[in-house]
Amino acid sequence: MEVVITSGAQESARLAADAVEQLLARKPDAVLGLATGSTPLPTYDELVRRHEAGQVSFARARGFTLDEYIGLPADHPQRYRNVIDRELVGRVDFASDAVTGPDGLAEDLQAAAEAYERAIAAAGGVDLQILGIGTNGHIAFNEPGSSLASRTRVQPLAPQTRTDNARFFEDDVEAVPRLCFTQGLGTIMEARHLVLIATGEGKAAAVQQLVEGPVSARWPATVMQHHPHATVLLDEAAASRLELADYYREAYAAKPEWQGI
Rank of each mutant, 00 (worst) to 15 (best):
L157D: 04
L148E: 06
L157H: 06
G134K: 07
V154Y: 02
L157M: 12
L148S: 08
G145A: 14
S150P: 01
N142G: 05
C180D: 01
H138I: 11
S146Q: 05
L157F: 09
A175Q: 08
A158D: 15
V173K: 10
T163C: 10
S150E: 01
P177M: 04
P156N: 05
R153T: 03
T161G: 08
Q155T: 10
C180V: 06
S150N: 02
A158K: 07
H138F: 15
F181K: 03
F181M: 05
I139V: 14
P156L: 07
R178H: 04
S150L: 02
S146R: 06
L179K: 03
V176G: 01
Q160K: 15
T161I: 07
G145R: 14
F169Q: 08
F169L: 10
H138C: 13
A149K: 11
L179F: 07
L179E: 07
V173T: 14
G145Q: 14
L148C: 04
L148R: 10
T152K: 09
F141G: 00
V173H: 09
P177H: 02
G134F: 05
V173Y: 09
N165P: 04
S147C: 05
Q160Y: 07
G134M: 05
N165L: 08
F169T: 02
E143F: 14
R151Q: 12
R153K: 11
P144F: 12
R151Y: 09
N165F: 12
G137V: 07
T135A: 14
G145D: 13
V176L: 05
N165M: 09
T161K: 08
C180T: 12
R178S: 04
A158H: 15
F168C: 00
E174K: 11
C180P: 00
T163V: 11
G137R: 08
F181H: 06
R167P: 00
G145W: 14
T152H: 11
C180L: 02
S146K: 03
E170F: 14
E143V: 12
H138L: 14
N165C: 10
P144R: 14
R167Y: 05
N136M: 11
R153D: 01
S150Q: 01
G145P: 08
D171Q: 15
A175S: 12
H138S: 13
G137F: 09
I139R: 05
A149L: 13
C180Q: 00
T163Y: 14
A175V: 01
D164S: 11
V176K: 03
G134V: 03
R162L: 06
Q160T: 15
R151S: 10
N142F: 05
D172H: 10
S146C: 07
R167N: 01
